[in-house]
Every structure is written in C-alpha cells, then in structure tokens.
Write a protein that binds this DNA or RNA. Structure first.
Lengths: 219, 219
DNA sequence: ATTAATATTTAAGCTTGCTTAAATATTTTA
DNA sequence: TAAAATATTTAAGCAAGCTTAAATATTAAT
C-alpha cells in the first residue's frame, strides 16, 4: 500500500482518537494538506479496498483492516521516534519529521528489530503508546489533559500530544518533557482560566497548550 | 526529487563504475526493472532537469548536478547499511533491501547525524566507500578483483561488490567478509581457470563471484 | 556489404494522486 | 424555518511513471 494510503488511514485513526473527533473528508483533507475533493476521492477508493466504510456526507470509519494498517504505521512512526531520540541529538520536531517519512519505508522485520533493540518500549519520546507487532496497545491510559488538572497538586507529564513545531520549541525552552514533574496552580484573569506550572521557572500556559499536555497524578 | 529520479541517476552512476560500463537506456532499464521505453522517457525528462546529457542512441552521461545527486543517494544508502549492520542482527541482503528504501527518505541532516554517530566511517559493511557530505570520495582504491589475484599470495577482502542475495548467502556460508584474509591458489580444469581460497575451509569460486570480490595485498 | 538480430525511440494509453470549478447537500444563524 | 454559510461531491483535467506495440536505428553475423 502506498504512502498516500497509509497517511490517509493514519489521519483517520488519529482524528478518531482526538477530542474534537471529526473524520469527515474535509477534516482529513486539512490534516493531510490536500483538497476536499481529493479526500472524498481517496475515501471511495479505500472503501473499495475494505479499509474504511464510506457513506456520502457521513464520517469515515476505519474497518478492522484499516485500523490494523493505521496501527502498523503508527507503530513504525513511534519506533523510529524512539530510536532516533536515543541515538541522535535532534529536536523532537526534527525527529517527528524524519519518522513521518521513514515510517512508510520500513518492513515489519525492521520494525521488530528496532523494537527489540530498544527493549520493546511501550512509549515513544512524546509518551505516545507504541502498538505491538499485532497492532495492539496494551497500556492503560490514566492520564488527563493538564487543562483538567487540579489546583495545588503535583503531576508527572505523561504525554505531549502534538506535532506542532512551536509547541515543541516552547516545551524544550521550558523543560516540559516526558516524565518531568509539574506543580499546578490556576490563575484567573477576566474570568478566563490560565494556568501556571512551577518547575524551575514559572511557566504560563494557554488553553491550547494545556489541552495537549497530558499528565498523571504523582503518587 | 522523486525516488524514481534518484534511482535512475544512481543506476547510471553505478553502471559507469562497473567494468562492462554501458549506460544506454536499455541497460539502465534492466537494472531498474522497467521497460526500455520508460528509461528513454525518463532520460529525456532528466536531461531537461540538467541531471544528465541525452543524445539519441548514445550512452547517458550524468552532469555534475546528476553526479552530485547520485553520490548523495549512495552516501545515504551506505550510511544506512553501516548503521543497520551495527545495530541489528540482519543479513547483508536484508540490510541492503532496507537501505534501498530508506535512502530516499533521509534528510541531509539525518545522514550527517548517522555519519557522526558511526564516527564518520569511510566504508560500509561491503567495503564500499561512503561519500562525505559534499559528495566526495577521498579514499584511494588499491584493491583488485579476486579474479586478478596472484597464485600463492594472501589477500584481505576489501569489498563485496554486489547486491545479489545468493552471492551474500554464499559469502555468509563461507565466511567471506570484509577484512577477512584469504589465500589464493589457482586451479585449472579443461584449460579454464577456477580458483580456490583457503580460509577455514577450501572454497571453490566461479568466475562470476571472483570478479565481484575485491581484495588488497596483505602487507 | 547485406541481412538478420537487437536496441532504441515514438506513440498511445493506463493508474495514482492530486488540482480547480461547479453542483449539490448539510449545517448554522438569524 | 428560511436564508446564508459551509462542506461535500461530481466532473474534468493534469503530471509522474509506468505499460505495450509499432517504427526506426544500430550492431552483429554471415
């Protein structure tokens, strides 16, 4: 299956996992940087290949076969992220960009070798779970968005759920990374809530960023 | 530039380096597993892109720009071979196949990181020289084909110049690998020369194989 | 030096993965 | 609930990278 197809099912999969989960062609098109027409077109083709269910004007739903393909690509992406992160001094965003390309040119055999080399990690450097070779994610996600965190408590960052360059640069600058500890205090201005994290410095997070940083309670 | 283009210039480059160097479209086509018509077509397109010189019925000659592109792809291929060989337990042929795909999805930045991680190696696991980031091969090749080696002398294997699966399997079976030592004795039967190498066992090499194994004198 | 064999080129056509423009349906908003 | 805004779909078309078949040129052989 082609890179275009792999990216298409991956986009549907990832969109389905998000909060504002809209898997209509237009949303997938925006994600992939292609026209709506192209997305509708592809949806029909992939329906014929039994990778997704397509009904006019409805959301796109992956079939089992499509979900398996998406998870296989996601697995390869996250394994590459983990490997590149371990071996090379590259920014999280650079690592993401490289993995985005390499994921489509990686045999199952190589993916398994990478996994074994890394000791079969369950998470990548963003805290995203890595599906196993059967496309299963066995880890249970107990994390919550930082925007939902409670005033005065301490949390451990479990996931930076984004591909955005500026977000990663912000995180790098403020030492917001996987497994680091943050103390949450909430700040209100004009009746709108903003947040403050205390680590080394005091960091002000906007609503956008605090909804893509996920944390676990520090027990 | 696309994978198809990168593979095309690479095929011309590698063909030009070989003994029976024929870079006419048909030969390139055979190498790439495409039709002659497709090769002629591509040659015209790449001529328009200033990657090669095309004149009807003549050999294809890479321009400086084309040579640079070929060397950049070759560099990435060989760096991947070296990295995969170091990290994973995979056959030389499997490593070759993976590198063949990854080479087209690798930024110059990542290539440089791989090179640095490996200590800027000058040769890959087959003994093929790795061009530097400017597309230069600075090492001087003093090796000769085993078919040219002298009776009774000892040599060090410097290069296994092939992509062929069966050849690699033969090499693995007989411990013919980069930097190993071989003792050459020649055998004639029916006036045709065959060769015998002594390492652990006695290995009989045919003409084909002894012309793609390169060696240096053991001084 | 012709003829035969082989290689290259041209031509027409196909699939994939996109585009833009126009038609149609859905959703939002007033 | 009807009009306005937005999204989706259809239609036509394009470039890349192939194919096969036929025409033409080159090379080899007698």
């Amino acid at each position: 299956m082609s890179t275009a197809i792999e990216n298409f099912v991956k986009a549907i999969y990832k969109n389905g996992k998000r909060d504002n989960n809209d898997t209509k062609p237009g949303n997938i098109a925006k994600e992939l940087g292609i026209s709506n027409a192209a997305a509708t077109d592809m949806a029909k083709k992939l329906s014929a290949k039994d990778l997704l269910h397509y009904k006019k004007y409805q959301e796109l739903k992956l079939t089992d076969k499509g979900t398996k393909m998406a998870l296989n690509v996601v697995r390869k992406h996250r394994l590459w992220e983990a490997l590149l992160f371990k071996l090379f001094d590259l920014s999280l965003h650079d690592i993401h960009k490289e993995a985005e390309l390499l994921e489509h040119q990686t045999s199952d055999l190589l993916a398994n070798k990478i996994s074994a080399y890394l000791g079969h990690p369950k998470f990548d450097p963003h805290g995203d779970p890595i599906p196993n070779e059967h496309g299963e994610i066995t880890t249970i996600d107990t994390s919550i968005a930082l925007s939902q965190a409670e005033e005065g408590k301490t949390y451990i960052i479990s996931r930076l759920m984004s591909d955005d360059k500026e977000f990663f640069e912000f995180c790098a600058l403020n030492e917001l990374k996987y497994s680091n500890t943050v103390f949450v205090s909430k700040q209100f201005s004009n009746n709108k809530m903003t947040q403050i994290l205390v680590k080394n410095n005091t960091i002000l997070l906007n609503q956008d960023f605090s909804s893509i940083i996920y944390v676990n309670e520090n027990n």
